[in-house]
Design a protein around this nucleic acid. Structure first.
Lengths: 187, 187
DNA sequence: CGCGGGATCTAGTCGTTGACAAGTTCGCGG
DNA sequence: CCGCGAACTTGTCAACGACTAGATCCCGCG
């Protein structure tokens, strides 16, 4: 179903998107080529453009899908702590999405679909902070938690934490980090 | 001095590097074109290649210079807290360097100059953690501090913290965040 | 049944880029 | 003054993004 149909591909959009995620994950967004993706899908070099308009359009679609998945992942976690873990888990399970999402110069930041998905993710993020934040500074706590999770996830993906984590599970390490900083007695 | 010389440019390497940093800062690493940089410097399209070999070589040079500057910045800060602030300050004052440094798929990670500079920066980072870490888990504290600073800096550069910070100074906000998480009584 | 229209894909082309090769100019030491 | 290497130029090729025009298919409507 995902592959060979005679003329109409069936679901070329998804095929190209999936292939793009594969390339981004293994070689980075810079290595992305519409023509290469077309070859992988077995279609002509201009076929992907019909679904994504542009190379930028493709990356915009990746970012939009990423934010949508991200919002779902966050929504599934109960409190702030688990939401942080979910943040890190999303980065490891969807590295390509994550990588593109936080490089706004790669895509169109004014895309309607993208904005909707991003707003949803942001709302989930804020809701997470609301479950904690007993001390007077919810905004500051939010920035702190977000920075911690995002920094951990980013360093993890860029390979700067491989020796620090070792052969342990990254999520478990992050859980300990969160426990270290966010449990001085209150909570 | 920086511009017109007859045949020999004088310091084309630096001129190209500076122009590259300018492009990366304003349009991102993806928009980087050797031919465009050559045009800006007023030299032929192949001149930059003589100094950097490759597009990848140019980005490797950017990353190497970035890590060197980064190590200097960190070394100038006394304790862990100030080192965190210095981390954020580096990201805001050298956004192009920072952006490239933490995208290893853009450059050659086995370059000798790069490795030397990165090792120096890593050593400074570790030394910073050594000044604090009174509780039993220095490694975990290090990961926490690094993640916090790196996450804050990254989110700041990607524009995800602009409304949260508002018109205040980013460094000052980060100082408060650090105070919030790293001062439960000890220190 | 067939036919028309829109969505999907193909084929061809143009300007730009990265990479490479070979030649040219410059400066500097012997 | 000469030659030798570094710095730079000119020319070229394959690949890519973007665009256009046209072919093919699917689907509903008469």
């Amino acid at each position: 179903m995902t592959s060979d149909r005679a003329y109409h591909h069936g679901d070329l959009r998804r095929a190209v998107l999936t292939a793009a995620l594969d390339v981004i994950r293994t070689e980075g967004p810079a290595a992305l080529s519409l023509r290469d993706l077309a070859r992988r899908a077995g279609v002509s070099h201009a076929a992907p453009a019909h679904h994504f308009k542009d190379r930028t359009g493709l990356l915009t679609a990746v970012a939009a899908e990423g934010y949508a998945l991200f919002a779902d992942t966050l929504a599934a976690a109960p409190d702030l702590r688990e939401r942080g873990v979910a943040y890190v888990r999303f980065a490891t399970t969807h590295p390509a999405h994550f990588q593109v999402m936080f490089q706004p110069d790669l895509y169109r930041t004014d895309d309607p679909d993208l904005l909707a998905a991003k707003d949803r993710a942001t709302a989930e993020l804020r809701a997470g902070v609301a479950t904690l934040a007993p001390t007077g500074a919810p905004r500051l706590t939010g920035i702190a938690a977000w920075s911690l999770a995002h920094g951990f996830a980013t360093l993890l993906l860029s390979g700067n934490l491989t020796d620090a984590v070792g052969d342990r599970d990254a999520e478990e390490v992050f859980r300990e980090v969160g426990r270290l900083l966010f449990t001085p007695g209150r909570d």
